[in-house]
Amino acid sequence: MRANFSSDEQSRSFTEQGRRAQIVAAAIEAIVELGYPRASFGQIAKRAGLSSTGMISYHFKNKAELMRQVVADVYRTAEELVGARVVAADTARGQLRAFIEASADFYRTHHPQLRALTEILINERGGDPVLPHRREIEGLAELFRAGQRAGEFRDFDPHVMAVTLRHALDGVALRLGTEADTDADLYARELATTFDLATRADQEKP
């Protein structure tokens, strides 16, 4: 059964979505400028152009809920950009290289989002904000398993390799975020080659 919505209801829905996106963007800005602890509703409201914090509280009951939305939005954006390039590759080795190179591209073009994400993951202790990070590692582990089943990857522990790759990419993200002259393409190529050599089946040639 299809739900029917009036034009007024649809308009309110779009308006609320836009307001939530505005608040999330302001939260990212506040975290980058002030750090996580000082990114209060008051500071976020100021950057969002809101007259009071009440509008934020209407959409997010507390800071933790808002931070979870920031994390979800950053990961969703990354998944859309990186995922499109990964699925375009027709081999596990190609998908691995595409994932690494596309991730580096995302880091280069989304510095504020990455800095905010790092602050949140360091400061939030409830567990929920890091769930997308765990899901990404699980997805990488499954990519490695698929490559092993296809004979493209050697025998290794997929989870350990996924965690290792995730930490290596975190290092690239940190360097790109702190040193403006970092050559992202060079880092992406070298990291992709490193993990290709580390994972490919013995009979494969680079």
Rank of each mutant, 00 (worst) to 15 (best):
1 M>C: 08
1 M>T: 15
1 M>R: 06
2 R>S: 12
3 A>N: 09
5 F>P: 01
9 E>H: 07
10 Q>D: 05
12 R>T: 04
13 S>V: 06
17 Q>F: 03
17 Q>C: 03
19 R>W: 02
21 A>T: 10
26 A>P: 02
26 A>D: 00
33 E>K: 15
36 Y>K: 14
36 Y>L: 08
36 Y>V: 07
36 Y>R: 15
39 A>D: 04
39 A>T: 02
40 S>G: 03
41 F>H: 10
45 A>F: 05
46 K>I: 01
50 L>E: 02
53 T>N: 05
53 T>K: 14
57 S>Y: 14
58 Y>H: 15
60 F>G: 03
66 L>A: 09
69 Q>V: 14
71 V>I: 13
73 D>F: 02
73 D>M: 07
78 A>L: 14
81 L>A: 15
83 G>Y: 03
83 G>S: 03
84 A>P: 00
84 A>W: 01
84 A>F: 01
86 V>M: 11
87 V>A: 08
88 A>W: 00
88 A>P: 04
89 A>W: 00
91 T>W: 00
94 G>I: 00
96 L>K: 03
102 A>S: 14
102 A>V: 08
103 S>A: 11
105 D>K: 03
106 F>L: 06
106 F>R: 01
108 R>P: 00
109 T>D: 11
113 Q>M: 13
115 R>E: 05
116 A>F: 08
117 L>W: 04
118 T>F: 11
120 I>W: 11
121 L>M: 10
121 L>G: 02
124 E>L: 06
124 E>N: 04
130 V>K: 10
131 L>M: 08
132 P>C: 03
133 H>I: 00
135 R>F: 10
135 R>I: 01
138 E>L: 14
138 E>S: 14
139 G>I: 03
140 L>I: 12
140 L>T: 12
140 L>C: 08
141 A>Y: 14
142 E>M: 11
143 L>V: 11
145 R>H: 03
147 G>W: 12
148 Q>C: 07
152 E>N: 09
155 D>R: 12
156 F>Y: 01
156 F>H: 00
158 P>C: 12
160 V>R: 05
165 L>I: 15
168 A>F: 04
168 A>D: 06
169 L>N: 06
169 L>T: 10
169 L>C: 09
172 V>K: 03
175 R>A: 15
177 G>H: 02
178 T>S: 13
180 A>F: 05
181 D>N: 08
183 D>Q: 03
185 D>M: 04
186 L>H: 11
189 R>I: 00
192 A>P: 12
193 T>L: 11
193 T>P: 01
194 T>K: 01
196 D>M: 05
201 A>H: 14
202 D>G: 05
